[in-house]
Simulated assay, not measured.
Amino acid sequence: MAPAHLNVKRQTDMTSQVEKFATVAAQFCEWAEGGSLSPEREAQIAHQFLCDLSQLALQLPPEFGEEEPAEITYETWHSIYRRFGSLPFNYYSHCFDPQEVPNDATTADLADDLADIWRDLKGGLSLFRSGHVQAAVWEWKQSYWQHWGRHAAGGIYALHCWLAEHRDVVA
């Protein structure tokens, strides 16, 4: 059995990881719900958020909670989707399962990626803010592995490629 002080430190570390994720998730949602900036700045911000959220999602502790997140209507999601029309591009080439070789590429939609990520994070935030922290962590972690992580990975790559090609504009 671990000494009590190690259990307290481990619990403190887990709480800190959850709080960091919740903070960045809230910042992402505020940005998504806010006004548009220049397309170049939007691309930079989106890229940074997707990198940060992905990295922080990997550090979330194993938790479980049964509470369900607040439902987000299609109309609300669609308003976020439309807001992301301010990005410098929306469509990019994507392969669903890169482990299948050869794999036919499909078209992905960056606005859809970001709006879906917003919806998944917003649901977890509703749980977090209502004091259901374990359920929030469960929601974020499960939805990362089952849904928004793929959207983030595709978005990171697409944004990276665009930003690399337009360094002179975004510098």
Rank of each mutant, 00 (worst) to 15 (best):
Arg129Gln: 11
Glu165Gly: 06
Val24Asp: 01
Leu159Tyr: 01
Thr107Ile: 15
Pro62Thr: 15
Val137Ala: 04
Ile72His: 04
Ile80Arg: 02
Glu63Gln: 14
Arg83Trp: 06
Arg83Ser: 04
Leu127Asp: 06
His94Leu: 13
Trp138Asp: 13
Ala25Tyr: 05
Pro39Arg: 06
Asp104Val: 12
Asp104Asn: 14
His94Cys: 09
Gln134Cys: 03
Asp109Leu: 12
Asp13Phe: 00
Leu58Pro: 09
Gln146Cys: 12
Ala158Tyr: 00
Ala2Ile: 14
Ala70Ile: 08
Val18Arg: 02
Ala105Tyr: 14
Leu58Phe: 06
Gln27Tyr: 01
Glu67Tyr: 02
Val170Tyr: 07
Phe128Ser: 05
Trp77Leu: 10
His94Gln: 13
Gln142Asn: 15
Ala4His: 13
Gly85Glu: 10
Trp162Thr: 00
His94Thr: 11
Asp52Cys: 07
Ala32Cys: 08
Glu42Gln: 12
Ser126Ala: 03
Arg41Pro: 00
Asp112Pro: 02
Pro3Gln: 12
His160Val: 07
Ala25Asn: 04
Gln99Arg: 14
Asp104Ser: 12
Trp118Ile: 06
Gly154Thr: 05
Pro61Ser: 05
Ala153Pro: 03
Gln134Leu: 10
Pro3Asn: 13
Ala2Glu: 09
Glu68Thr: 11
Trp145Glu: 15
Ala32Lys: 00
His47Arg: 12
Ile117Leu: 12
Asp109Asn: 15
Arg119Asn: 10
Gln142Ile: 15
Val133Ala: 04
Leu60Ala: 05
Leu159Val: 01
Leu60Trp: 05
Ala2Tyr: 09
Phe64Arg: 15
Arg129Trp: 02
Leu114Ser: 01
Arg167Lys: 14
Gly65Trp: 07
Glu33Leu: 03
Ala108Trp: 03
Trp31Pro: 04
Pro61Tyr: 05
Lys9Gly: 00
Arg119Phe: 05
Trp138Ser: 14
Trp77Phe: 11
